[in-house]
Amino acid sequence: MAAETTDTTGTAGAGGGGGNGRWAPGDQILWRYRGNARPGTGGGIHICRPVTVVEDTAELLAVWMAPGTDCVKPLLADGTPVHREPLATRYTKPRTTSVTRWYGPGVLKLARPGEPWSVWLFWDLDWRFRNWYVNLEEPLARWAGGVDSEDHFLDIAVYPDRSWEWKDEDEFAQARRAGLMTDAQAERVRAAGRAAVELVEAWGPPFTAGWERWRPDPAWPVPALPEDWDRTPVDHMPVDRAPVDRTPARVEGVNPV
């Protein structure tokens, strides 16, 4: 696991957890993703989810995204939801962002420092455990207000009977065709996926840690989405962005990213 937090804002610990730069259970932070862009061009924040810290140690960051949370998600500039756009043009048409409310069951997210994936736990509304979801991504970068990453399209669903399957392989292939990652980057993602599969097949943590029996503190409020949700970790100042539709809209919570 990684060493102590380095906060690029110069205000280590500002996100909670005191002088050791770690957050305390119940602290509210932002879990964000940069937009995927062609190599060398960079991408601004296009996904932002306010979450509550469950645990933050040198070995693990665990956070809870509660039902009813207002989140930022990408949207095509013409208003079409990304998942409804044909795959051939899904990654080439102009995009903006919108705010939607997460109406499905909550999601528990687990990330170990330095690992190129996070593991998410899903339940049904009656708290019957559904599955784990290995989201392949850049290792989380911590800052005072939360954590940032970049999604790598390819994912793995893991089920209570220890079976697993690749998810979104079509999107991964299309992202490569659209120039959103080089061949070398794609191979690194595949290698990370193979390493994650080895962990699944060995049935190591977090699959053996009992997180599926975890429940949130009922006293925790639903975190609010701040106006400056896309502020930069360097100076905490908001950056220019396209107008955001802040009318909450129902989301199904099926495709995590």
Rank of each mutant, 00 (worst) to 15 (best):
P216F: 00
V234R: 15
T232Y: 09
A196D: 06
T208K: 05
P243H: 03
V239T: 14
V222M: 03
P206M: 03
M181Y: 11
T232W: 11
D217G: 04
W203F: 07
V234G: 11
G210C: 11
L225G: 00
R177T: 13
G179Q: 10
W164Y: 06
Q185W: 06
E187D: 15
P233N: 10
E187S: 08
R190K: 13
T232P: 06
W229V: 06
W164N: 08
W220P: 00
P233G: 11
G179H: 10
E198P: 00
L199C: 12
L180S: 03
D240K: 14
P226E: 07
W164P: 02
A175E: 01
R190D: 11
D168H: 10
P216K: 00
R188I: 02
Q174W: 04
F207T: 01
E171A: 13
A184C: 10
H236E: 14
R190I: 13
A191S: 14
E165D: 14
L180A: 11
V197P: 00
F207D: 00
R194K: 12
E187Y: 07
A175N: 04
D217C: 02
P238F: 12
D170E: 14
A242P: 02
D230E: 08
R215W: 07
R213S: 15
E187N: 08
D168N: 12
V200Y: 01
V189S: 00
G204C: 10
M181F: 12
T232S: 15
R194C: 03
A173L: 13
W220R: 01
D228M: 07
Q174Y: 09
P218E: 01
D170G: 04
R231Q: 14
W214D: 00
P206K: 01
D230H: 15
V239K: 12
G210M: 09
W203C: 12
R213Y: 04
D230I: 04
G179R: 11
G210L: 05
A184S: 15
R213A: 15
F172M: 07
E169M: 12
P218A: 06
A196N: 06
E198F: 05
E169H: 14
P216E: 01
A202P: 08
A175M: 08
R176W: 09
R213M: 05
W164H: 09
T182S: 15
R215D: 00
A175F: 03
W214N: 05
L199N: 12
G193R: 04
W203Y: 07
D217N: 13
E212V: 03
A202M: 07
V200Q: 02
A202C: 10
V197K: 04
R188D: 14
L199T: 13
W229G: 03
A242W: 08
E201G: 05
P216L: 01
V197D: 02
P221A: 12
A192Q: 04
Q185T: 10
